[in-house]
Structures are given as C-alpha cells and as structure tokens.
Design a protein around this nucleic acid. Structure first.
Lengths: 341, 341
DNA sequence: CTGTTAGCGCTTTCAG
DNA sequence: CTGAAAGCGCTAACAG
C-alpha cells in the first residue's frame, strides 16, 4: 500500500480548469464573490473526485486562527468536568470550533500546557475549577499575549481574562452551621487527594470546615479528616473506616458528590441510619443526589451543574476579537438541604 | 488594551543577531547541528525576552504533521470512555502529542467529523466502541487517505486501519446461560437509548439477550426490555419500575455497569434481596462492582478497563509512517461471576 | 558553524 | 466574474 499524497487546491484547480483562488472561494461557499453555478459545480465535482479537503494547518496559518478551543481540566472522570466538557463541546460545535482537551495534573504538565497555548494551538481556552499547578502568573502571561481565556477560580482576579467564581465558602459555612445547630458534635471531612499533598492549591472546602470547627469551639481531629472524595471506591472505603471506628463521627462532610454518595452506601452497609446515626453532606449537585436513600444534601449550585454560560463567555470573547480587562461572573452556590442532613 | 502582535522567529533572529534558521534549530534543540552555547544562549534569551513561542500552525504546515491525535467518542461521561480518554492522554503526552476530543452523537456530527479528519486536523484517530453513525464507508475513506486509525468495533474489518474487538457475544451468552441454568425464568434487559431508536448501530448485547431467550425457549416480553443504561438516574427509575411491576422479573441484565449498579440500589430500596429475589448482571468492569452489596457480576474484561494497548496501537501506526493492511486485536471479555447472580 | 532560500497549502487583496 | 501573486511563520536543504 502506498500512501496517496493528499490532493491540494492546486490539484482541484487544475482538474476543474480554474485558478486556486476560485477553488478557495467555492470551498468556503463565500457569497461575497459571485460565482456562476456552472463554475462552482465543476469545482465541487473535481473536489469530490479527488476527495479533496482543504488542509487545516495551512488555513490556520493564513487566517491566523485555528478554530479550536482548549479545555484544561485537572483530571478525567469527574462529573463536574464531564458536564463542563459536554457544555463546551455543544457550544463549540455551534460555533464551528473543535475542542482540544488537556489534562493538567502535574507541574510539568502545567508548564507544557502553557507553552502549547502560547504556540496558539487554540483560539481560546477555558480553565476548569481546581486545576492545580497553573500559576496566576502564567495565566496572566497568556492573557497578555492576547489569548481569549476564561478561568474558573475563586482566587484568580480578572486580568485580561474572565473569571467565573462560585461562593463556596459561604455555602459551606451555612451547611456546617446547620449540622452543628442540629446537634452534630463530631463531623468528619472527606477531601480530595490533592488537599493532602503539598499542592499549591488551597482548599476552600477544607478551610470552611476548619473555620466551622473553630467557630463552634470544636477541636480538630485529624483522625476524621481523610481523603477519598476523588473516587467512589476510595470514598466507600474511607467512609466505612470512619463509621467503623470506635469513636464514630455523627456527620460526614464530603468534598464531592461522589464521595457523599459512597458514604451513604457505606453507612447503609454498616447498618447505620442516615441521617439519624450519621448525617451526610456532599458538594456539587449530581442528579444522583435525588435518588439516594435518603436524598443527599449538598453544598453546590441550586440546580444541576450547567456550564453553558462559561462556554458562552469564551466564545463572546473570541468573537469580540479585542482583549478586554475581563469580567467577573459569580455562579450561585447554596446549601441544598435534602434528607441526609 | 491593544493586542500585542505575536513575535515570530524573525523577531527573535533580529534581536539575537542570528538568522531564522538558527532560531529554529535552537528552539527545537536539535543536536544534528552543532551550535555553540554562546549563540544558543543569546537566542534563548531573545526568545524569553519577547515571550516567543513558535507558531503551531506554521510548524504543522511545514512539517506536515500536527502532533495531535483525535479521539472520537459517542458521548461524554461514560466510564469506559473516560478510561479510554485517560489512557490516550497519557500515551499522547509521552509521545509529545495533544488530544482533540470529538463527540459524535448524530449523523450530522459524524459527517462533520469525517470532514475534519480529512482536513488533517490530527495525525491519527481512535474511534471508541459504539460510536454511532460512523459508516464503515467513511472510515475506509479516511484510512485510504493515509490517516492512521484504530477502530474499536466488533463489526468493522481491518482495511488500512487496526481494529480492536471484544467478544461480547460469547461472554453474554455464558452469563445468560448461567442465569437460566440457576433457575431464572424472567430476565429483563436494560439497554442504551440508542438501541431503541432507529440508529444504524446494532446492539450485540441485546442480540445476545434475545438469542438466549430463544435458545432456552423463553418468550420475549417487550415490557421488560427497557432503556436506562446510559445514565444512573434513568437506570434507577427503570429498575424501580421493573421491580415494582406485578410480574416482576427475577433477573436484570443491564447493558452497562452503571445501569446494573443503579439496579442493585433500586432492588435494595424496594426491599428485595439480590440475588435471591432478583439477580443483577452488568456489562463492563467498573471498580465499583466490588463495593456494591452484593458485589456485581458482569460481562466484561477480566480486570478493570485498560486501553493503553489501544493507544499504543495508534502511536505505533503513526510512528511507522507507512500505512499497512491493519491488525486485528481481540481484548478478552468474560463472565465475571460475583455475588449478584 | 551559520545564513539564504524555497517552499508547506491556503486565503485574499489587487488587477484585469 | 476570474486569475496572479503575495505572503502567513516555520523548517530543512543547500551553499558558504
């Protein structure tokens, strides 16, 4: 088998007996240039015959845009990221854009990614929440280079890019106060792995938890501050361990929805009643929260995650063409009290 | 704010007092050209000063490769796709490639995607299992155009691309025979949405189910052939409906792992015992299968999903450069009997 | 050891 | 209405 050389617009032009300019106009279906149907059909037929498709790199080089956006996430398989990815894909598709996904889960990846973005691998970028190792510094540099960017973060401040925030702290505080107010005296925290490493990422949820302990004169007990929220299986094991300990907590605050759902299962499997024996509180707002027994209380958006607005911000910015100082958008986060607390 | 024009290699060359060729060699760290440290440092310093990064489109055009691979999936948020995406990202990263993800969930998207691939948006492509609407015809066309490709499918036949298969039918048959052999007389099927539309995609799992009914002289009852396997919430509701019906099934075969797990929950919430009252069988091999009560029997790979081999196939093919007829690789699928059947 | 130069394939003025 | 020609920014011969 020999690799057939890809046909170029020149080949099509030759076959159709026109110039490459005409081929370009026809292929792009441009209306600002009046082309007789006869000519157009001849070009189209030649293109079909040769299975011609305009080369994307060449077009990008010439038009100075790639028609790709880049979505930067911290890992794969997190429901909120999946929803974000889905929403971005839909919007991108509408705008005729493709989506390049990059996973940043190490300082090395973070650095490489910033490099790629500088190389104009995409016309815009969305940084998902809690992507570690991306410094404000490098983000600022990217924005300054003219790359449209929307950053989901509670700490970043708009600086040539848009920032989307979620007021986690207030919502966590409200939920934790409610837990204490309803008599919980030993509240466990199940966090993400990276909260327990020496990641540069500070955890708003853990901070809110610790602040609540302080506020209510409760002492911190590292035995019931555990990881596991990243992953259903780990969460199940972590919750099981917590609930089988001699000094069992009477509430578990999980930093994810999946963690909380696994905790409900762990409690049931340990023959404990939720919320009587142990209250369970999660983060986010997974659709599943409504089908658990009991239904899961969470701190999160009032309805299911929806990131279409975030995608819209990016495409508006791309369309605008000219960099602006940057908006700051706040998505609501509240205490969704249901039956598990 | 004015958008700073991106610096080019010419700018760097001028600042460093060298030619663009030297800049190129330095930036690519090429060892086949001996460049004195002094010159190199000057170039690097100039690049740093201008925040120069080589333009990706130009490089792709010139080198005739994009250093991107494309992953085509049917939807977002399916655990098996997530695992595939994760494995592809890891391999790609090692190979210095990026990953463009495209979601094909309509005939329209399928067509557009084939078009993009023809435009050489990527140097290779992996088609995930069960991506609908992609015809063998268009895949063949892509392969013939010289695009390295690995297709996960049980029906496609290698034709300039590699095919990765999973012998689902045999494994399903074994599991279903076991269900019948252990006395199950009314087995429900919970499938994917697309099995109930007029999608061109035939379902091997549904076919295996129907064949098993036939084989054992059981009659098909469309009341217990339902959808819901795509989504945990839908599955929970579907299973609940099934289990509360007057003529309750004594087994549920779900075409996904998530569907089966939701079915276990639904059974427990309906105060039924698994497997005594109802056996539950899933597909795939989610890690969660081991933490459900009882543990979940599945038809699927013997261990957790692992697609690194698939990614390897693609990168081998890309590295080879020359198109070959195509390998056919079969991943094992078996009946993983655990406690739920 | 380094610079000059010819494109990669396309889009888009600008002339005809 | 159509074609010629000038690049987009980079890489890789090739010549010095």
């Amino acid at each position: 088998m020999t690799r057939a050389k890809q046909p170029t617009s020149r080949d099509v032009a030759a076959l159709a007996g026109v110039s490459v300019a005409t081929v370009s106009y026809v292929m792009n279906g441009r209306t600002d240039r009046r082309i007789p149907a006869e000519t157009r059909d001849r070009v189209l037929e030649a293109a079909r015959q040769l299975a011609y498709a305009p080369n994307r790199s060449a077009r990008s080089l010439r038009r100075r845009r790639t028609e790709q956006v880049c979505l930067v996430v911290g890992s794969i398989g997190v429901p909120a990221y999946d929803q974000l990815a889905a929403d971005v894909h839909v919007r991108a598709d509408e705008a005729g854009y493709g989506v390049i996904t990059v996973v940043v889960d190490s300082p090395d990846r973070a650095e490489k990614t910033v490099g790629l973005l500088h190389q104009r691998i995409a016309d815009g970028v969305i940084i998902a929440p809690d992507v570690p190792y991306l410094t404000e510094n490098s983000l600022g540099g990217l924005a300054r280079s003219g790359l449209p960017m929307v950053v989901m973060s509670n700490t970043a401040v708009p600086d040539g890019f848009d920032v989307v925030r979620a007021p986690e702290t207030a919502a966590c505080a409200e939920a934790l106060d409610h837990l204490v107010g309803s008599g919980r005296r030993r509240i466990a925290y199940m966090g993400h792995e990276h909260e327990f490493s020496d990641s540069p990422l500070s955890s708003e949820r853990l901070a809110a938890y610790l602040a609540a302990l302080e506020r209510h004169g409760m002492s911190r007990d590292d035995d019931i501050i555990v990881s596991g929220a990243d992953d259903r299986v780990a969460a199940y094991h972590a919750a099981t361990a917590l609930l089988n300990a001699p000094d069992r907590p009477d509430a578990i605050f999980a930093a994810s929805g999946r963690g909380a759902i696994s905790a409900i299962w762990a409690a049931r499997d340990a023959s404990l009643t939720v919320p009587d024996d142990v209250a369970i509180l999660g983060c986010g707002n997974l659709p599943e929260s409504l089908i658990t027994q009991p239904t899961l209380s969470t701190v999160g958006p009032p309805a299911a995650d929806d990131f279409t607005e975030v995608a819209r911000l990016l495409f508006d910015r791309i369309a605008a063409g000219v960099p602006s100082k940057g908006h700051e958008v706040t998505e609501p986060w509240i205490y969704n009290r249901r039956a598990s607390t």
